[in-house]
Computed example of a mutant assay.
Amino acid sequence: MSGKLDTKEIDFVAEKQGKSIYVQVAYLLADKKIQEREFWNLLQIKDNFPKFVVSMDDVDMSQKGIIHLNIKDSLLNNW
């Protein structure tokens, strides 16, 4: 399901047994403005559940506890 934080949208919020994960999806994080847009919404969430940004980028852009994943790697990983 998708979620909202004030007027900002979180692409996917998954909940199971009282635990959540948050996921933002972008094609490419090509510039600083796009990176800020995708990470900012997740930075506003003050709980300690996992937060992810998924894109086609091969370079790891994880920051401030938010994990950046390459889409191919994330689909092949056994979470």
Score class of each variant (00 low, 15 high):
20 S>Q: 08
49 F>I: 03
1 M>S: 15
47 D>H: 01
55 S>F: 11
40 W>Q: 10
30 A>I: 08
74 S>N: 01
17 Q>Y: 11
27 Y>S: 03
36 E>P: 01
34 I>D: 09
8 K>H: 09
2 S>I: 00
9 E>S: 01
70 N>H: 05
70 N>K: 04
43 L>E: 15
57 D>G: 05
6 D>Y: 10
17 Q>G: 06
21 I>T: 09
12 F>N: 07
74 S>Q: 07
14 A>E: 08
31 D>R: 07
2 S>A: 03
72 K>F: 13
61 M>T: 02
46 K>Y: 00
36 E>F: 09
14 A>T: 04
30 A>F: 14
8 K>D: 09
68 H>N: 10
75 L>V: 13
32 K>W: 06
40 W>R: 11
37 R>G: 05
5 L>F: 12
40 W>S: 11
78 N>D: 11
53 V>Q: 08
13 V>C: 10
74 S>D: 03
23 V>N: 08
62 S>D: 04
46 K>E: 11
7 T>G: 00
71 I>W: 13
60 D>I: 09
18 G>L: 08
71 I>S: 11
68 H>A: 07
41 N>Y: 03
6 D>L: 11
43 L>C: 00
41 N>K: 03
24 Q>K: 05
37 R>Q: 09
17 Q>D: 15
62 S>N: 00
77 N>T: 14
38 E>L: 12
31 D>T: 07
18 G>H: 10
75 L>G: 13
28 L>A: 06
3 G>A: 06
48 N>H: 04
72 K>P: 02
7 T>V: 01
54 V>I: 15
30 A>K: 05
54 V>L: 15
36 E>A: 13
18 G>N: 13
33 K>L: 09
55 S>R: 08
66 I>T: 02
70 N>E: 05
41 N>E: 00
49 F>E: 01
29 L>W: 04
11 D>M: 04
5 L>S: 05
51 K>T: 13
66 I>K: 03
54 V>F: 15
9 E>M: 01
42 L>K: 03
70 N>R: 08
29 L>G: 04
40 W>T: 09
69 L>M: 10
40 W>N: 11
77 N>V: 09
76 L>A: 14
6 D>N: 12
56 M>Y: 12
52 F>M: 12
58 D>E: 13
2 S>M: 01
40 W>V: 02
23 V>K: 06
14 A>Q: 06
30 A>D: 09
3 G>I: 00
64 K>Q: 13
27 Y>C: 08
40 W>D: 11
2 S>P: 00
55 S>W: 13
32 K>D: 15
79 W>N: 14
17 Q>P: 00
28 L>W: 12
6 D>H: 14
21 I>N: 06
51 K>L: 07
29 L>F: 06
4 K>V: 07
29 L>P: 09
24 Q>N: 03
55 S>H: 10
43 L>H: 06
68 H>M: 06
12 F>W: 07
46 K>A: 04
3 G>P: 03
62 S>V: 05
